[in-house]
Simulated assay, not measured.
Amino acid sequence: MANFVLIAGARLGSWAWDDVVPHLRAAGHGVHPLTLSGLAEKQGVPAGQQTHVQDIIDEVERQDLREVVLVGHSYSGIPSGQAAGRIGDRLAHVVFLDSSVPADGEPFVSAWPDGGAMVRASIAENGGFWPVAPATHFEGHGLTDEQIARIVGGATPHPGATLTEPAVLERPLGDLPATYIKCTLGDPEPTDDVAKLLTSGHWRLIEMNTGHWPMFSQPRELAQVLLDIAGA
């Protein structure tokens, strides 16, 4: 039996996995969707990037989870990649779901074309938080109007320090047993840093023909992909 630890991307909480969780549990696995500090029901909790890394480690250790399949979506690939290197033999696999990947000493925003200037300015203008994205941000990703409204309605401003503080890798990402799930709708190719990691013998690529939020657009299909990974 695998224990799936599911972490959604920026501005989202554990609720984002509600349509995926039943499929994983029905297959007999443990499922642990996690809200990171400062988001959703944990709003108001101060958080930097290492707070989010520790959130994941604490969840695994508090519940004494083994055979962990750690799934980090979008922004959450950054803390998940760091946590995966710190939970030792509890880790079975780490899944980067259309996500960023951490680079030692670099923040999440460093991979942005402008070096993160626009995000940093937005954080400064919004009291230290990255504000919720408008509905137009989610268009072109295979989502219905209802699904977009659900995402926007449930999203909360994201703690800015988690985006601007540097990653700290205790284990090279290329050494981790990992799968990168690329959502190809609108953006079919992995980024250069991901492409490099995929040359590792420990990494593999799976493609999904949907947009960046597959837990909403294709929850059943995503669950099956995750089950296949756990069984590999």
Rank of each mutant, 00 (worst) to 15 (best):
residue 190 P to C: 10
residue 115 G to E: 11
residue 221 E to D: 13
residue 141 H to M: 13
residue 207 E to P: 01
residue 171 R to T: 15
residue 66 R to W: 03
residue 148 I to P: 07
residue 160 G to A: 02
residue 36 L to H: 03
residue 216 F to N: 04
residue 185 L to R: 14
residue 222 L to A: 11
residue 102 P to E: 13
residue 84 A to H: 06
residue 37 S to C: 08
residue 194 V to R: 00
residue 26 A to G: 12
residue 200 S to D: 05
residue 155 A to I: 02
residue 191 T to W: 10
residue 136 T to H: 08
residue 127 G to E: 04
residue 171 R to S: 13
residue 14 S to P: 01
residue 39 L to F: 00
residue 143 L to V: 03
residue 18 D to H: 14
residue 134 P to T: 10
residue 175 D to P: 07
residue 20 V to A: 08
residue 130 W to N: 13
residue 29 H to D: 07
residue 20 V to Y: 04
residue 126 N to E: 04
residue 124 A to P: 05
residue 128 G to P: 13
residue 199 T to E: 14
residue 136 T to Y: 04
residue 16 A to N: 00
residue 41 E to R: 05
residue 220 R to W: 01
residue 26 A to S: 11
residue 14 S to K: 11
residue 86 R to D: 12
residue 210 T to Q: 11
residue 66 R to C: 02
residue 53 V to R: 07
residue 23 H to M: 05
residue 134 P to E: 08
residue 168 V to R: 15
residue 188 P to W: 11
residue 84 A to N: 04
residue 16 A to K: 07
residue 30 G to K: 01
residue 125 E to S: 15
residue 138 F to K: 01
residue 91 L to M: 07
residue 2 A to S: 15
residue 95 V to I: 09
residue 72 G to P: 12
residue 37 S to A: 15
residue 206 I to N: 00
residue 80 S to Y: 00
residue 77 G to L: 07
residue 201 G to F: 01
residue 131 P to K: 04
residue 113 P to K: 01
residue 187 D to P: 02
residue 190 P to L: 10
residue 82 Q to C: 09
residue 60 V to C: 03
residue 215 M to D: 08
residue 185 L to F: 02
residue 85 G to K: 07
residue 49 Q to H: 14
residue 199 T to V: 12
residue 110 S to C: 00
residue 53 V to C: 12
residue 71 V to D: 07
residue 128 G to M: 08
residue 19 D to A: 13
residue 216 F to Q: 12
residue 81 G to A: 15
residue 187 D to G: 01
residue 8 A to Q: 09
residue 57 I to A: 06
residue 13 G to F: 12
residue 216 F to C: 05
residue 126 N to I: 11
residue 223 A to G: 06
residue 6 L to S: 09
residue 51 T to M: 05
residue 125 E to R: 15
residue 139 E to Y: 07
residue 4 F to M: 11
residue 21 V to R: 09
